[in-house]
């Protein structure tokens, strides 16, 4: 790997090999490596110790910010009992939307999303949290040109089409049909889950 560049390196590099180490016993070599690992371990542990609290706090802030950006007009976000990461966004006691996590299999692996669904089963907003879609193709799914189509849709129109004259359904991103389908399916599942939850009378 380095042979190509060795000859190109500057004149300051000594051309003779390093003087032989007399004390090169296997123990010394092992201790050398152990010491290096120990020192780097201490550095990492120290930094972790110093930054961990801030990191946890920042993460919570970020989460609150995400929830806030999903349903901007709500004034309280309550955790749903018995459901992890489900939130109810309400304003003055009236439920505006359920914010639920969704996941579906895209082209490059799982696509993780947060979906805000109104109690009557309409997509209010959604946010792709984590995805490994092809940069430049599949990752256009978070651009408003595509994601805007999903807003305000109910379950029956959450299907992907390639027909430009079909205005009711979701127009696929060209070159990224799998991603388009995955995102739409994830959102649709979230809508279904919320509908089920509302039908069971949960709040």
């Amino acid at each position: 790997m380095t042979s190509t560049s060795t000859s190109l390196s500057t004149s300051t590099a000594p051309s003779a090999p390093k003087p032989a180490h007399k004390e090169d016993s296997i123990l010394r070599i092992a201790l050398n490596l152990t010491a290096a690992c120990l020192i780097s371990g201490l550095f990492i542990a120290g930094t972790y110790f110093l930054t961990h609290d801030t990191a946890v706090q920042k993460e919570a802030e970020l989460k609150a910010l995400t929830l806030k950006s999903m349903v901007t007009e709500a004034d309280s976000y309550k955790n749903v009992a018995g459901k992890t990461d489900w939130y109810i966004a309400s304003k003055a006691g009236k439920i505006i939307a359920y914010i639920v996590p969704a996941e579906s299999k895209g082209y490059g692996g799982a696509i993780k999303m947060l979906v805000a669904v109104t109690p009557d089963g309409v997509v209010k907003n959604f946010n792709i949290l984590d995805s490994k879609e092809t940069p430049g193709l599949g990752d256009k799914a978070s651009k408003p040109q595509f994601s805007g189509q999903l807003l305000g849709k109910s379950a029956e129109h959450l299907t992907v089409t390639k027909d430009p004259s079909d205005k009711d359904d979701i127009m696929a991103i060209s070159g990224a049909t799998i991603t388009s389908r995955a995102v739409t399916l994830g959102v649709k599942n979230a809508v279904a889950e919320v509908a089920q939850f509302v039908k069971e009378g949960g709040s």
Binding site: C37, S40, I44
Partner: peptide, 20 residues
């Protein structure tokens, strides 16, 4: 080890002070 340590330190610092 040295490269991995530097990268980990950067990750920890970014996580705490610039999560976005």
């Amino acid at each position: 080890t040295s490269i991995a340590t530097i990268v980990t330190l950067v990750q920890l610092l970014l996580q705490a002070y610039a999560p976005l």
